[in-house]
Nucleic acid binder design. Sequence first.
DNA 1: ATGAAAGCGCTAACAC
DNA 2: GTGTTAGCGCTTTCAT
Lengths: 339, 339
Amino acid sequence: MERKPVPGRRATIGDVAELAGVSKQTVSRAINDKGEIGAATKERVLEAARSLGYRPSRFARGLRLQDSVTVGLLLSDVTNPYYPEVASGVLEVAEDRGWHVVVGDSRGDRRRELEALQVLARQADALIGQCSSPDEELARELPGVPIVLLDHPPGHRGHGSVRIDFTSGMRQAVDHLVLDRGRRRIGVLEGTPRANPATERRLSAEQRLREHGLPAGADWTAHAVSHTVAGGEAALAELLTARPDMDGVVCYNDQIAIGAMRELKRAGRRVPADVSVIGFDGLPLGELVTPSLTSVHIDKARLGRLAVQEVARLLADPTAPPVPDAPVVHPELVVRGST
Amino acid sequence: MERKPVPGRRATIGDVAELAGVSKQTVSRAINDKGEIGAATKERVLEAARSLGYRPSRFARGLRLQDSVTVGLLLSDVTNPYYPEVASGVLEVAEDRGWHVVVGDSRGDRRRELEALQVLARQADALIGQCSSPDEELARELPGVPIVLLDHPPGHRGHGSVRIDFTSGMRQAVDHLVLDRGRRRIGVLEGTPRANPATERRLSAEQRLREHGLPAGADWTAHAVSHTVAGGEAALAELLTARPDMDGVVCYNDQIAIGAMRELKRAGRRVPADVSVIGFDGLPLGELVTPSLTSVHIDKARLGRLAVQEVARLLADPTAPPVPDAPVVHPELVVRGST
DNA sequence: ATGAAAGCGCTAACAC
DNA sequence: GTGTTAGCGCTTTCAT
């Protein structure tokens, strides 16, 4: 919700015109550096503008020109190290197109998410976000707002999405543990519940484990309460209690994986000698821990860039149906010390 | 610069009014959930709006209501792990006030910085940023735009700032190395050149080193080309060549410190047995490396919160002179494994 | 080279 | 309960 107006009303083009003793359009010409204006007049106008601390109203200009685009980027938590690269991709393409980007943070709260989206929607032409709210809810609460979901399967009309191929990613992770490292008792650390349960990453891992003839399922799974190092530590502790003979862990993301590594060490296990750990996302952070983290990298900047392109598509035709071939980001295994 | 308009012109309140067979005012009442409207009429209007994909123009609304505030946040590099917490503080207070936040990224480029600020200024009422451009340049290129500089001494009229007490911070760092660890041959890893050379952090460190009767100066200093782990690695290698007998390093920030630790290990030195390393900023990252990083923590979220408060002050009275007692963030030493 | 008038899309104020 | 009028601050015709 917007609040009260800024005190001390700002000078308008009319004030400048009056002070300079010219008409409004002359002021407009001066400040927009158009031709058709005398050098002396221009200088006088600019001086008047300066002395009044005049700045053109972005609203008036936007209303008149109708050529400015703003996209809203909703993050579930700005401090999550997953986002900077995504944001970087978003900002890069936005800048190329001359678009502005407003950001919001839902602090991991589902209710706040919707509120934050609505606030952003007041200032943006379209939204980008990793939303946990179901599509129907978004459509209901944000009627007419083009939304591009990060890491969601294609959804409703008016919603775009960028997919990440988790099936392939998880398969690479499991195959590496099984085929390259010879692990046979592999646990899975899943993240928090997802909007669409069918998209849980662990499912892809479990399927691949079974294809290798290995055990998998609830017994071999723990859920991290948060996608953080602490969440990973707690989840691994839980999993280790159930499966003390575990010799490998596939994790929902790198932070959880790093937490898993820390907890394993604390429990007296050596990584990777006793237990192999593998993460997902490929955060720069993974290179700094010891041993450095093997992870399935995804090009997060590309995810951001693709999202802005999807926004452009939606903006061009808001009634376009969701395309079946939404852009996909393909994960790629990068092996380091932890396996 | 803004580009061409979005195609397929959006429906206006007039279109909705026409379709619903009512006046614009009635539409306005319906979509803004005011009273004074029949339930049936309201439903008919909302249905019309829905079918047209109508969304109110933020420009028209902003122009009319004059109650929306947007602040622009310029970062030198979104992917720098220093920023998320700052942004978090900015977003927190902005949200409390009902303000929007637009972000820009200058990619560490001085020229881009000014451009990015100008782009942001088109969409924001005031700016916040860690700017490397001199005050005069900002004042000249962004006339009338209230700016709050992060980590700068108070500057010109119309500019606000939030200070970080580097003198105290660097003193704590040096004192820890000298008094608590007994180090006597301490090197300094400074960052890239600053807008105001007098604010280089190394100066505070060098002064304190001299107060302890220890050697300091160019011989004991290396400059990191970038504020990154790689930058720290290179800088430390350089310093180590000049001072192979070094037994401690004070670093410009945590990333450089982590780079220093890595390079020291690579050179066969033990940390902290042979060389003590100390960072600055207190990134969460520092807890994950081995050994974990001792650092002078600064409350980055608070920095962001204070910056927004300064913006509020400037917005309330744009002609207010810079206050001598700009808000200050006080650093605090947190000791961990690396010293 | 400069000015007057119109209108972008919206809502507050005031009819009815 | 609903419509009419006016005007937010700006730029774009079109005159002069």
